[in-house]
Design a protein around this nucleic acid. Structure first.
Lengths: 145, 145
DNA sequence: TGCAAACCCTGTAGTTACTATCGGGTCAAG
DNA sequence: CTTGACCCGATAGTAACTACAGGGTTTGCA
């Protein structure tokens, strides 16, 4: 199977496959005489694994580590456990932050009625005023990640 | 006020200020004979505005546009309105995606008990199996943004 | 007055996970 | 034998910074 077909089957771009190869996430496949990559079913499986992890928004570094670990059946699984747990924490935190943000934006959005001038714009007013105020909920001291 | 002081007052890094200047988000300040930037209170206000917008996770391009618009009081406010609304949509979508993701990761995490071997790892098993399955909820056809 | 620490300068490269483009080579059908 | 679809490697771009490297300046203190 050539790179275009694998890309189609795995649902990614051709460049992404070359990129993953450079980054060591998939093994370099064999080549035809003219230099074309030829992939086997193992490569498709690997790509599906990677894609699944990425759909869980895991960083590629973690995926790479998972691949390495999964090849070494005897080793303790604590690291896998920890990686997933840390990732879950990150996602949880980000989700919470976005929830707050969504609320603030919705409020902001309510300030503005269509069709008036910038001079009377509730949103801009609000943004500027909030910025002047000492410590708005949005920027307490350190930036929200 | 020199760059270090403005950075401290605005709660950002010195490099960030220079970066914003390069990107045209803050006006180039005057310089001392030896080339040091000297800022006035306007610059601090501007930085607070930017920081507030950034704490709402707005892209810098939008912030830049807001700054331009807020200097032009007579123009219609529809664009401001639209920007905030579009941004709200983005945030909403991302939050929903993260919610799903969090659920999936929590389930995954529940697969694993501490201290066993990779050969029996529920997480890895799950990740690999799910990847093999035709269409898991995580990667239906197109990648989740 | 001399010196060191703390500050400032420009410019460049790195981060993440790709995507896009360039200039060229190869393959298959008609 | 040509045309279009495919492939190759290398490079640069994305967002919003952050981190150097290799210098110059200011400030406080002895």
């Amino acid at each position: 199977m050539r790179i275009g077909e694998l890309a189609a089957q795995a649902g990614v771009d051709v460049q992404t496959l070359r990129y993953y190869e450079r980054e060591g996430l998939i093994d370099a496949p064999s080549r035809t005489a003219s230099g074309y990559r030829t992939y086997g079913p193992v490569h498709l499986e690997r790509m599906q694994f990677i894609r699944h992890c990425r759909s869980l928004d895991m960083p590629l570094a973690d995926v790479k580590r998972l691949i390495a670990l999964s090849g070494d059946k005897g080793v303790s699984c604590d690291e896998v456990n920890g990686m997933v747990q840390r990732h879950l924490e990150r996602v949880r935190a980000k989700r919470a932050a976005l929830e707050l943000l969504e609320k603030q934006l919705a409020e902001l959005n309510a300030q503005c009625e269509a069709g008036h001038r910038v001079a009377d714009c509730g949103i801009l007013e609000e943004l500027i005023h909030a910025a002047q105020g000492e410590a708005c909920a949005c920027h307490p001291r350190a930036r929200a990640s």
